Computed example of a mutant assay.
Amino acid sequence: MEVQTGELEIDEARLREADPDGLYLFMLEDYPYMMTPDHVAAFSGTTSQEIRKLLCRGDMQGCRIGIRWFIPKLGLLNYLDKDRREKEGGTYAATEMRQAIQP
């Protein structure tokens, strides 16, 4: 099911693929699709500065607009599931961010 958010359609199937065990999506329901480092920090129990470090190093997927960072839910889910995918030899090809938002 695709949800229309303003001008964006969010592909819910891609989000479910990124969270195959269903551990995180229900906890992220109250957060916007494009989260700020403060949102991610509140969700993860860390600081927004640590989230910005992960973004700058490329460990977490996000985009920078001016001085502000935005992290799509799919980027956070990919980061949270990264260790399991590396152990299984998987890649992020099935959950690429560019496919999460459809024009």
Rank of each mutant, 00 (worst) to 15 (best):
D59S: 09
E50H: 14
R84T: 06
D38W: 03
R14Q: 08
M35E: 05
R84G: 00
Y79E: 00
L76W: 07
F43R: 05
K87V: 09
L8W: 10
L55D: 02
G62S: 09
L15V: 11
P32I: 01
S44E: 05
E17S: 02
E96M: 09
G62P: 02
T46P: 07
T95L: 05
Y31E: 03
P103A: 14
R98G: 07
D81R: 08
A93S: 13
P72Y: 11
Q102M: 07
E50L: 08
T91C: 05
P103Y: 13
I71A: 05
I10T: 01
P72I: 13
G90C: 08
D83A: 15
F43N: 10
E29I: 14
T91D: 07
L23F: 04
R16E: 01
T46Y: 00
E17D: 10
T95S: 10
S44M: 15
T46N: 09
G75R: 06
M60C: 06
A18V: 03
R14D: 04
A18R: 07
L74I: 15
M60A: 10
L54N: 04
S44Y: 02
D83C: 10
E50T: 09
Y79F: 15
C56G: 00
F70W: 12
Q61M: 05
D83E: 12
D11A: 07
D11L: 01
Y79C: 00
Y92R: 12
T91L: 08
M34N: 10
R98M: 03
R57V: 03
I10E: 01
R52Y: 04
